[in-house]
Amino acid sequence: MNDQIRILLVDDELDFAETLAERLRLRSFDVNVVSRAEEALNTIDAGWKPDVVLLDLKMPGMDGMDALIEIRSREPDVETIMLTGHGAASSSIEGMKRGAFDYMMKPVDIGELIEKVEQAVAKKGNGG
């Protein structure tokens, strides 16, 4: 299914994000990594429109929840998967209520993550 799916990965833990991105690229995904929510919005505003955003919940500056709302208002058809640490399940559920496609606890299983990304893209392809 992966027809160069574009993923915007937003996480301030850059070692985690860059390594996950490398693993996704090895599987032929087109991945852009940024470390702050504000950079993610700038990337989208500059015209790099992702199919799916992988969004860390807890970041300095604008947090994942506020970024989710901003992304949804700019690009309603871009699906977002929230990435969370432990103890953040309630925030993740709140994210779902605010329009996130799904959420995953870190550390993520790469197989499960790809499955969710592809489901998100399929939903997008079906017009939500």
Binding site: D15, T19, R23, G85, G87, P107
Partner: peptide, 17 residues
Amino acid sequence: THKFHNHLAVIKEYSGL
């Protein structure tokens, strides 16, 4: 523990890579 969790998540990704 949040920081510790991050270390483990990174180690897991490195191992996966």
